[in-house]
């Protein structure tokens, strides 16, 4: 697999390490249902057949975390974004900068 790091360009997957589903977001620890929310955040995952947003880390490259959209059926990489940019946009949308 080759992943197009938005900072470094196309690199083989041996430069990256994988974390998992990027659609789960760290919950608000102060929320009343924090325990349940963190449990879901830590353990509950959909087993997606198709395009999935995933967190990858450019470990042997620029150390950027990336949100990679990968089709789990054929490993086609459909999109790669800087995780920090995605997270900032998410915060902006939710108005939750900490």
């Amino acid at each position: 697999m080759r992943i197009n790091c938005p900072h470094c360009g196309l690199r083989s997957n041996d430069e990256f390490s994988y974390l998992g589903d990027a659609s789960v977001v760290r919950p608000d620890p102060a929320a009343p249902n924090a325990t349940e929310a963190f449990y879901a955040f830590g353990y509950e995952r959909a087993n997606i057949a198709g395009p999935m947003q995933e967190l990858w880390y450019h470990a042997a490259g620029c150390h950027a975390w990336l949100v990679v959209t990968r089709d789990t059926r054929n490993h086609e990489i459909l999109d790669v974004k800087s995780a920090q940019e995605v997270a900032l946009e998410r915060q902006k949308a939710a108005g939750t900068a900490q």
Binding site: C8, R11, D14, E15, A60, G61, C62
Partner: peptide
């Protein structure tokens, strides 16, 4: 410039 690795050496 490229940041990469060679035989696991950064």
């Amino acid at each position: 410039v490229a940041i990469t690795h060679v035989s696991h050496l950064g």
